[in-house]
Design a protein around this nucleic acid. Structure first.
Lengths: 201, 201
DNA sequence: AGATTGAACGGATTATTGATTATTCAGAAA
DNA sequence: TTTCTGAATAATCAATAATCCGTTCAATCT
């Protein structure tokens, strides 16, 4: 079925052009079909709906992003905390630029996360895998790493939620967000009581 | 002007009844006025608009909540981390019960934070003051406290955003949220590298 | 004079209607 | 038989009309 995959890719490409040019809502299935020299009905043999095409576009993009994050997570010559720092900053900057500056991308993000709430969870899960891989790598290099890596990864995500969907919270500028993220990372790594003087609550 | 304050309180009481029973949108100024035995126009000598009445109700409520938090922040016989823990948990539980269970309260929160974005900032500022007071108290008791208290308070708020507006993020249940908050607090207090083996990023 | 009213204004909200368009499927083409 | 079409359907969206309600203020009362 290499043929089928080629056509799927063609559809994604056509839709991507339309969506990024006119927006998701203003693009009709008929238009995408015409661009692919087929009837609207035929699209449904390749994707089960308009939203699935949008999801495919988002996934293609996000997969590239994940690859990039994976590189940062494994970067040689950097300490664990440095790699965590780079990872979270990359995440913030990507989201910021994608969502604050590009109204088309923002529209698609809103539609997908309203219509397919599970999608956001999938993204978090994928990113968490990278956090765990990062900690495993740190362990291999002989750095200290907490024993419950999966749980720690989850907590890191919890504590940095604000930077993952910055536009939902406030109209903070990127420099302000960066300053805050810097502070939160420091707190996460060292703790409020860095000398270990406090017992856990 | 004790007279004027009495009437203001009467208006707030009448509005509170209506809002909690029928909702903010479905309550008219004329109704509130009738409940107070006055004409709609006269309301405006006491509050400059419907939203200001809603704000007064919210503030009355929130002030009580702040008093409660202040008590937790100063509780004798508890360590600093324990007091922070109690404070953040109280915050989560209050928000959860107020917003997840009571659609009327949720409606009002949405309206106020859309129409008066500064209000949410005011709430964060007030709560931050308490966090700073808490650290000052810890210092007085001879516990270790980071030197930049205001900044640390801000970072604690950043890292616990998810638990301050839980309904915005996900449909997580209270137990799941509590488990997560527990983990985040532990991370915040001790850090990922609790033995101080890592240099700051 | 100062306090209060309630009718009038206009912005917002809802209801109604008429397109537009995502999706389906009976049948045509290959 | 398998692949594809395009008209039919149903759901959604946009435009318009109708209504409602927050707010104001000229007039009335105390």
């Amino acid at each position: 079925m290499a043929e089928k995959d080629t056509i799927r890719e063609q559809i994604v490409q056509a839709a991507k052009k339309r969506f990024s040019h006119f927006g998701y809502a203003k693009t009709t299935m008929a238009e995408v079909a015409t661009d692919c020299c087929m009837s609207p009905g035929n699209l449904y043999r390749f994707y089960s709906g308009k939203l699935d095409i949008a999801e495919a576009i988002a996934t293609e993009d996000y997969t590239k992003h994940l690859d990039h994050l994976r590189k940062l997570a494994m970067a040689p010559g950097k300490s664990g905390p440095e790699r965590l720092h780079d990872l979270l900053f990359e995440e913030l900057r990507r989201t910021y630029h994608k969502l604050e500056k590009d109204p088309r991308a923002y529209e698609m993000a809103v539609v997908i996360s309203r219509e397919r709430p599970e999608y956001a969870n999938w993204m978090l899960r994928e990113e968490r895998k990278i956090l765990v891989e990062m900690m495993e790598e740190a362990e291999r290099r002989g750095e200290y790493v907490p024993p419950d890596k999966e749980f720690t990864a989850e907590m890191i995500q919890s504590a940095t939620m604000k930077f993952r969907y910055p536009q939902l919270w406030s109209k903070l500028t990127l420099p302000k967000l960066e300053r805050e993220l810097e502070g939160v990372i420091k707190l996460l790594i060292n703790g409020i009581c860095p000398q270990g003087r406090a017992k856990a609550a």
